[in-house]
């Protein structure tokens, strides 16, 4: 029990320091007097931390990660607060105070959500279209030698070219920005996945292949009931990386010529020197990426429960 208390003590000392800094900061900088959103944000983070601790204890796993992480977060916020609001050392426009950034979450949540939704739509359409197409064509190309013989060299040339390289050109080429972004993401996911699928099918374990051949499957049965499940673990394990790369490509594409989206929001805020909005946008992108990886991990566990 005393060990547990000490563990909780240190994060909360930092928390108290942070709250004190926020409350007693001189109100010289613009917007610093609106500290309500920041404190609300602190409460949300604290609640998330406590939930993690309780869940940890229920599972009987005494991981130190939540404690260390929360200390890291409080220290970061505290330093930020000291550097901006308290001491006023930082440039008042270029480096927004935490109060400003959290106020942005409060004031702009509708705009932020809209932009996220817009980006997510493009991301998911491009990503899943690329993934499904690549797996499907990869299975057929892997199984039929003639298809493989001609598509493999093409894939080998295309796969290593980063999709971001031709995204400016695609943005110029395609009728709308939306379609261009979808195509950039699709291509970025398609070629590596296609190549990987062919390689996995060709490199199938000989024992599994022999077992399958002994059962005289039709090509259809072979592809859907043997090859597809066989390649799923390999494909899925690369999913997190390709999802993050897709988001990267999308945000990059949004920097040129988009009218909505997370990348656009950040870019636009910087153009108008609204750095509090820019920082808020960057934080939101971080949260979204984290959520996406978390979902992908859940999906992975479900899909390969036989391993």
């Amino acid at each position: 029990m005393p060990v547990r208390c000490r563990r909780l003590l240190i994060p909360h000392l930092f928390l108290i320091a942070l709250v004190a800094a926020v409350l007693f900061a001189p109100k010289g900088r613009p917007g610093v007097e609106h500290w309500g959103a920041l404190l609300a944000g602190v409460v949300v983070i604290e609640l998330l931390f406590l939930t993690a601790v309780i869940r940890n204890r229920r599972r009987g796993a005494e991981s130190t990660a939540p404690y260390d992480l929360i200390v890291f977060v409080w220290v970061l916020l505290l330093l930020w607060e000291l550097y901006t609001s308290v001491s006023n050392l930082a440039h008042p426009v270029l480096v927004p105070a935490p109060e400003n950034v959290f106020a942005t979450f409060h004031e702009q949540w509708r705009t932020l959500l809209l932009n996220i939704a817009y980006s997510m739509q493009l991301l998911l359409v491009g990503f899943f279209a690329g993934l499904i197409l690549a797996v499907l064509l990869g299975l057929y190309a892997g199984w039929y030698p003639r298809l493989r013989a001609f598509s493999y060299p093409i894939a080998n040339v295309m796969a290593p070219i980063p999709a971001v390289v031709f995204s400016p050109y695609l943005v110029a080429l395609m009728p709308t920005f939306r379609s261009a972004s979808v195509v950039v993401i699709l291509l970025g996911v398609f070629w590596p996945t296609f190549l990987g699928t062919i390689n996995r099918v060709v490199g199938m374990e000989p024992q599994i292949l022999d077992s399958a051949r002994m059962l005289r499957p039709t090509n259809r049965t072979m592809i859907w009931r043997i090859l597809l499940p066989y390649i799923i673990p390999g494909t899925v394990s690369g999913l997190k990386v390709s999802m993050t790369t897709s988001l990267l490509m999308l945000n990059f594409a949004e920097l040129m010529g988009a009218t909505h989206g997370m990348g656009f929001y950040v870019q636009n805020s910087i153009t108008y020197a609204n750095y509090a909005h820019a920082v808020a946008g960057i934080i939101v992108i971080g949260v979204v990426v984290t959520l996406l990886s978390w979902i992908v991990t859940k999906v992975q566990k479900k899909l390969i429960r036989w391993q």
Binding site: Q207, I208, R216, P229
Partner: peptide, 30 residues
């Protein structure tokens, strides 16, 4: 290979993504 023959390999080779029952069932269905 033909469906008039079946084989048990020296190194056990089941399809890892099928349960024991599904493995047997798949053979029967084939």
């Amino acid at each position: 290979p033909g469906t008039d023959r079946s084989i048990v390999f020296q190194s056990y080779t089941l399809f890892p993504w099928m349960t024991a029952r599904q493995n047997v069932l798949f053979g029967i269905q084939q």
